[in-house]
């Protein structure tokens, strides 16, 4: 119902969406897992406050993140010199900030639970420091993967942040969610619907993967 050209456009948009969200997930994972792990085992003043704030940030409205990143990257903003605004790079930055708290907070919870359980046993075995951390992280790797998938699900479905910092420029920063919003308001329902179906399929696949990972891990490792 789209025609060859429409289909080409559709796939370009899908590919850009995935590139942006996967990049954001990669960055948020690289920063979020160590941050979560450090919060789980570190003992420093204000730790509880940080944990509470982090948990609260999990529900951050994407438009607010978009606004903050917009201010940061706009010509007059502190990082305006980078010239990132209205590029896919800006969208990656916004989504990274959006899902970093999710990945870090879920990671903190898993690490803290496992650590509380393992701590004495590992010390009894003379396992300390990096080695103890590696043991715990390895043993909860499936929970960590679930945390990353939760971040991916959130990134691929959000519209507010990428709309504001990307500007929804045709062929440059137009992703699935922003296109759906725009085309629907313009009345081009076939493209919006086509993208909507792809988006739902992707989100479903991510959630199915998260579910299967958890199930398999539960069965295999208890």
């Amino acid at each position: 119902m789209l025609g060859a050209l429409g289909e080409l456009r559709l796939w370009e948009i899908v590919v850009l969406s995935l590139r942006v969200s996967l990049s954001a997930v990669a960055l948020a994972t690289i920063a979020g897992l160590p941050l979560g792990a450090a919060l789980a085992v570190g003992r420093f003043p204000g730790r509880h406050a940080v944990v509470v704030v982090l948990n609260a940030l999990m529900g951050l409205p994407p438009v607010v993140v978009g606004l903050a990143v917009y201010l940061l990257l706009s010509r007059a903003g502190p990082l305006g010199g980078l010239g990132l605004l209205f590029t896919p790079g800006a969208m990656v930055v916004a989504q990274t900030l959006l899902i970093l708290p999710i990945i870090a907070a879920l990671c903190r919870q898993s690490v803290e639970d496992a650590w509380r359980e393992y701590d004495e046993q590992l010390r009894s075995l003379g396992v300390h420091g990096m080695r103890a951390a590696a043991t715990v992280l390895w043993d909860i790797r499936f929970s960590l993967l679930t945390a990353v998938l939760a971040g991916l699900g959130r990134a691929s479905a959000e519209v507010g942040a990428v709309m504001i910092v990307g500007g929804n420029i045709d062929g440059v920063t137009r992703v699935m969610t922003t296109t759906i919003a725009l085309e629907t308001s313009k009345g081009d329902l076939p493209l919006a619907l086509g993208l909507g179906i792809v988006l739902v399929a992707i989100v479903l696949a991510i959630n199915a993967a998260a579910y299967l990972v958890k199930e398999a891990a539960q069965r295999k490792y208890g």
Binding site: L125, T135, Y221
Partner: peptide
């Protein structure tokens, strides 16, 4: 450390197979 071991009231089982639990302490 190496020459003492402790068994806790609630055993701490690593999220691995029984065999891997033993191999882990040997490696440690």
């Amino acid at each position: 450390r190496r020459l003492q071991a402790m068994v806790f009231q609630r055993p701490v089982m690593l999220r691995r197979s029984a065999l891997e639990n033993v191999r882990y302490v040997l490696r440690a």
